[in-house]
Design a protein around this nucleic acid. Structure first.
Lengths: 112, 112
DNA sequence: TTGTATACCTATTTTCTCTAGGTATCAAGT
DNA sequence: ACTTGATACCTAGAGAAAATAGGTATACAA
């Protein structure tokens, strides 16, 4: 019973890092932004995003700062330089991976 | 400790189906063919491929036939019509998914 | 005051992949 | 004759990630 299609492994991490590259965001906002930016194609719920944010922070890829906003307290996340490096690495991996798969899907012309 | 990069979820299934679309193959052959076709980028070991083949057969996506070949017995797999349909569906999913992600990675021009 | 949206959180289950073995046959080398 | 390496099949257990399915609390509108 998968709400999202397959091929999701590592994708939430990649997209969280990419979204935070543009500007700081808080968790609830990231959930909505990811769904919007991908046209609902990649739309992990809070149960995926919050634990992921905590892990990325523990790894030193994100910096979190609680800040009051409109009566509430929000937790804003920004990329660390380590996070930026990870984003580059993951983007590379993703590109190599999708190129390789695309190649196979197109084949077997490549073998001829 | 991942031998393969991330973003792997569902990929072995997609590629097994795609490879078998071209011609029947046996398990050990598929392991080598997948590594070769992807330039070692996607190279799951036998411990991934064999259980996957058994699952796909149980689901009726593949048909298996044991056949002696060179003194040994090999298990050759072919796509069923259900398997062909699944390949189309997964290919669609994969295309939608990678397009959506590509879009986000390129952004935020898309939002402007 | 009842409901809905916002905003945070976590425990458990499920689903895959990965690791790390094991068995058996055959060909080639020593 | 013996060992090694390639071929060819298999599975059990560990590990990682996402999905599920909750829970808490505040603000605002009906």
């Amino acid at each position: 019973m998968t709400a999202n299609p397959s091929f999701m492994s590592g994708v939430p991490e990649l997209l969280v890092l990419r979204l935070l590259q543009d500007r700081e965001m808080y968790g609830y906002e990231i959930v909505a932004a990811m769904a919007a930016a991908t046209g609902q194609v990649v739309a992990p719920k809070e149960g995926v995003i919050y634990p992921l944010l905590h892990d990325l922070e523990k790894e030193g890829l994100l910096k979190a700062q609680r800040r009051p906003a409109g009566g509430r307290t929000r937790v804003y996340y920004t990329l660390t330089s380590k996070g930026v490096r990870r984003l580059f690495d993951l983007t590379d991996d993703w590109t190599r991976m999708t190129r390789a798969i695309q190649h196979v899907l197109k084949g077997p012309a490549h073998a001829v």
